[in-house]
Every structure is written in C-alpha cells, then in structure tokens.
Nucleic acid binder design. Structure first.
Lengths: 210, 210
DNA sequence: ATAAGCATGTAAGGAGTTACATGATTCT
DNA sequence: AGAATCATGTAACTCCTTACATGCTTAT
C-alpha cells in the first residue's frame, strides 16, 4: 500500500524479466515502462539496497569491479507476486493542462488554443512511440511469454493518445467558434483584442458548481 | 515552474470565480476540479497564508469570528494570469494498473482480468460524473463566462473515460482468448489451473526491450 | 444535549527529485 | 589523450499526506 512498495514492485518486476545493473534498471524503466511509469535516479539505488537487505535481490560482481548485476532471488519472485496482487493505489490527478483550460477565461482564448495544439502534438508523438514499442516487442522472441500482457499496456497508451487527439480536435473547433462569436459582438476590431486587464471586475460571483 | 506554484494557481483560480473560506476551497477543488486536480488539506492553509503574505489574497472576518472568507486582490488576479501563462509541467506518470498488467504473466490471468473489470467500472462511473457536472454547469447562470472553457475539461474527462472503456473491452476479449489458448494446450484441466509457483524458472532471460 | 458538519491550523514523517561527488571503461 | 558513457552512491531539499488538536455552529 505505501507508495515505496510500488517502486519495489517496478524494480522486482523488471528484474524478473532479466537481471541487470541499477543503471540499466533506470534506463529500462524509462524506455520500456516510460509511458505509464517513472522512477527517479535517487530512488532506485536506495530501493535496491533495501531489497538486498531483505534478501529479495542478490548482487553479483561482474565485468568491472565497480559494476554489480542485480538478480531476483526465489523469495524476491514470491514477493513480486504478492505486491502485484495488492490493489493499485489510484494516483491523485494533477493535470496542469486541464487546470489552465478550466480557467481559460482568465488565460485568454489564444493562449488556450496554443495549449491544446501542444497537447495534440504530444499525443501524436505518443502514438508513434507506441507503434515503435509494439514493433520492437514483437521482434523480441525472448519476451514471448510476457508479450500478450505488455501489448495490453501498449494498447492502453494508444487508446489514451487517440482520445486526446480526438478531444483536441473538438476543442480546437469549439475555440474557433468562440473566437467567431467574439468577432460578431465586436466587428470593429478584427485583430487581437488584447483585452488583458480590461474587465476589472473580479468581484463577487455567486455559485461555482451547484 | 515549482510544484507549489501549481497549488497557488488552483487556489487563485478558484477564488477568481468566487471568494470563499479555506474549508470551502478544499471542497470546491475536490468536487469541481476533482477529476483532474487534487490538493490535500494540509496544503491549502499554508498556501493561503503565503498568498496573504504576498498580498495576493485578502481575508475578511465574516459570520462567526473563527471563519474567514478569502478573496483575490487585484494583484492576485494579475498573478493568476501570470501563473496560467506558464507552461504546464508534465506530471510523471505512475499508473499502478498498467504496472500490474505489464507484469501480468507473474500476476496471473484471472487477477489481471479482475483489474481490467474494475478499471472499466471506474471509467463508467466517471462518465456519469461528467454528465452530472455538465448538467449542473449549464444550470448555473453565474458561470456563463467560464462555461465554454469548463466544458472543455468535462469533454476531456469524457473522452478519457470512453477510451478506457473501449480499451477495457478489447483487453477483456484478448484475455478471454488467452485463456482459451491455455485450455487448448492443456485440455485435461478445464478448471482453474492454479499454476502459481509452478514454473520455478525466474532465471536468465536475455533482452527486455531491444 | 449531542452528534454532525464547518472551520482553522500544526506537526511529523514519508516520498521523490535534483544536484553533487566520484571513478571506471570505452570509443575516437 | 580526451570525451562520452557507464556506474554507484549521497545529501539537501521540496512536496505532500496524514493525523492530530481545537473549537464553533446547526440540525435532530
């Protein structure tokens, strides 16, 4: 349940696929789990030390003297299964884009539009990333056992990205209509209205939500 | 850019719609921004104190002596616009569901299926929540200015929830096919195989990603 | 009267990021 | 020889959550 256990889960999971160094662990987590998971550098080494203390992973000197490969112990595999079986803790959402859109009337239509365009670009980039991930997964014969499950996570990324693109397109159309409506109200000023600081009425509104 | 500024943004934004107490602030953030934003209790009061110190909000005694209503100052409104114009920091993803699915071969097909079913239920619940939010928004005449922007965030929630449902349906079909394939391989055991701990080969795999 | 909800704050602690320090190895 | 990359770790700091402490007001 505590959040640090999720870090342990990610590390044990990665090591269950293949033993590796802490450095490699970080790169795999970034590159392979990156679209739905992240661990920072200063998190991985302390977590590895703790897992070693509990005999859930073992380090073996290999290559240079300063390089250790970490591997799951049998107890580590059991622990991984235990951790995976615990209910996922729902993350507290903190979506900076939607926060800005919500207060879009203060931000202004043009800046809002740029935010949405940017979000659409990011979603498109994710879509191609998912495509790359799917190809390299299917090329890797050693992952045959895991592939069906990993494909579910790739598909989730694609669904999410496509939803973002569809939403962005609708939002852009909506914003364009709002801009037109503004122009109809004030046909004398077809250029950027620049009404920043103009409506000096931040005063009492009376409901917000119900 | 620092994360605490996002807290200030949320608070200033809420107060730009309507002055209120710290307690009400927390409830509005939970109920109105809840599907894309969260602030914890212990965050709001210190942030309000800091904003007051910077003269961005003002408190006025009202009602009981122990109850203060906070309101934006003109400087606070300008600061809000400044903060909204800063680029949103992308949140580090931490999706416990996808982490478990990724390692689904260790978790087992049945537990994986339950996770997906649960995710679909949550998405359906969000869809009805969004519907409620849209209705109460359109009923509230005082939010007419903000409504077009707020609707964009509601629409984002709907797109996201519908994508989750569509994904879950595909995933469930996929998981059902996987279960069938297992049964064809081992037609002697049509019941729950319970092969937990059976394949005791956590040993060397050789690629993981490329 | 008493329970539920409104209201304000503080303190302790855990989580997580960033930057720093250090050195080995490999490529050019 | 020098640069890039691999590799391990620590320390300081920010952020955030949770639990606690307190007391008022309103409904039952």
């Amino acid at each position: 349940m505590p959040r640090s256990e999720q870090t342990q889960t990610a590390i044990l999971g990665a090591l269950s696929i293949m033993p590796m160094t802490g450095y490699a662990l970080r790169e795999e987590i970034r590159d392979t789990l990156g679209h739905f998971w992240s661990e920072s550098f200063g998190q991985i080494y302390p977590a590895l030390a703790e897992l070693e203390r509990q005999s859930l992973v073992e380090r073996s000197a290999e290559g240079g003297s300063r390089s250790h490969t970490f591997a799951l112990t049998p107890a580590g595999l059991l622990r991984l299964r235990e951790l995976l079986a615990e209910p996922p803790q729902q993350e507290k959402p903190r979506n900076g884009l939607l926060l800005r859109l919500f207060f879009g009337s203060q931000l202004g239509a043009e800046a809002t539009r740029r935010l949405v365009l940017d979000a659409r670009e990011k979603a498109k980039a994710q879509l191609t990333q998912m495509d790359v991930a799917r190809r390299s997964l299917l090329d890797d014969a050693s992952l045959a056992d895991q592939a069906p499950y990993i494909l579910l996570t790739i598909s989730a990324g694609e669904h999410s990205a496509r939803a973002s693109i569809a939403w962005a397109n609708e939002a852009l159309a909506e914003l364009a209509m709002m801009a037109e409506a503004v122009m109809l109200e004030a046909p004398e000023a077809p250029n950027t209205p620049d009404d920043r600081d103009a409506p000096e009425t931040p005063s009492a509104r009376n409901s917000f939500g119900s």
